[in-house]
């Protein structure tokens, strides 16, 4: 018993200050894509050609679709002009709409806004989510689970992952929706009482991720269920997920 108390004392208080203070990120973190068209060579689209998943527009003004992006930085390596990079400090990437995930050269990115009216009144102070893993690689799941550890302590915001769809206010989807999980996903959604939210996290759940266009997957949950919040990344950093959830419930603006 004494040893347990002593260990508890040594481990100390570890819950992070976020959102009251910024959360430090590793120096090589790949967050918000930054495109500087002024640096681009004439007609150069080396970045678009280098992207294995085609998330950079090959014509017109330069845009990057974060919903498809794996944040692999193959484009950064391919760019001869240092015109594209990923912010090591900005992890606020979530969006309320699919189109909103597009980063346009020279334009500021606007992260998700809060729910409106009655939904915000209902879920702003208490949001219970049922997680469905639908064909991913378990990395999004792992970094979502992390939010319930003492470091992140999701519970302090009134947000919690619950064991049954009947207890839930919404569904949190990871994975590209494999054909083998389609039915279970829809059954879970149907079991959640109205009104309900859908949050999709990770490149898979938004657009198929690394498995995009495989015959065995459906390129994300869009089209099966109406989505209220898109959290990009492969996998999204726990900070990106937390920030997205807090924006949705109006705790971060």
């Amino acid at each position: 018993m004494l040893k347990a108390l002593l260990t508890r004392f040594r481990q100390g208080h570890r819950t992070m200050a976020y959102p009251d203070a910024p959360q430090p990120l590793p120096a090589r973190f790949r967050g918000l894509p930054v495109i500087e068209p002024a640096r681009c060579g004439d007609g150069c689209r080396a970045c678009a050609a280098a992207c294995p998943y085609g998330c950079i527009s090959a014509s017109g003004s330069l845009t990057l679709d974060m919903g498809t992006c794996l944040f692999c930085a193959d484009c950064v390596a391919a760019c001869p002009h240092d015109a594209i990079s990923f912010s090591a400090t900005d992890a606020c990437l979530a969006s309320r709409t699919r189109e909103g995930l597009t980063v346009t050269a020279g334009e500021e990115y606007h992260a998700a806004v809060a729910l409106e009216g009655e939904l915000l009144r209902l879920f702003g102070r208490s949001l219970k989510l049922r997680e469905v893993s639908a064909g991913g690689c378990n990395a999004c799941e792992a970094d979502t689970n992390v939010l319930s550890t003492i470091g992140w302590d999701l519970g302090r915001f009134g947000i919690q992952f619950v064991a049954s769809p009947r207890h839930a206010d919404g569904m949190f989807v990871t994975g590209p929706v494999s054909e083998n999980m389609r039915e279970a996903l829809l059954a879970t959604y149907a079991a959640i009482p109205e009104p309900k939210l859908v949050i999709v996290a990770g490149a898979c759940a938004i657009n198929g991720g690394p498995f995009k266009d495989h015959a065995e997957v459906h390129n994300g949950a869009d089209g099966f269920v109406p989505v209220d919040l898109y959290i990009p990344g492969c996998p999204p950093s726990p900070l990106t997920i937390l920030d997205g959830l807090l924006r949705l419930v109006g705790r971060v603006k």
Binding site: A50, P52, Y53, L70, C72, D74, S133, G135, G136, C137, A139, G175, P176, S178, E179, N180, M181, A184, G209, P210, F211, H214, A215, E216, V217, C234
Partner: peptide, 25 residues
């Protein structure tokens, strides 16, 4: 089998620029 996403089928004819990402996942 619920997580089956066809990785081995997709690898036939590879490697492609996508292959390393499929390996990592």
């Amino acid at each position: 089998g619920f997580q089956h996403r066809g990785i081995e089928r997709a690898l036939i004819g590879g490697p492609t620029p996508r292959t390393v990402h499929e390996m990592e996942t």
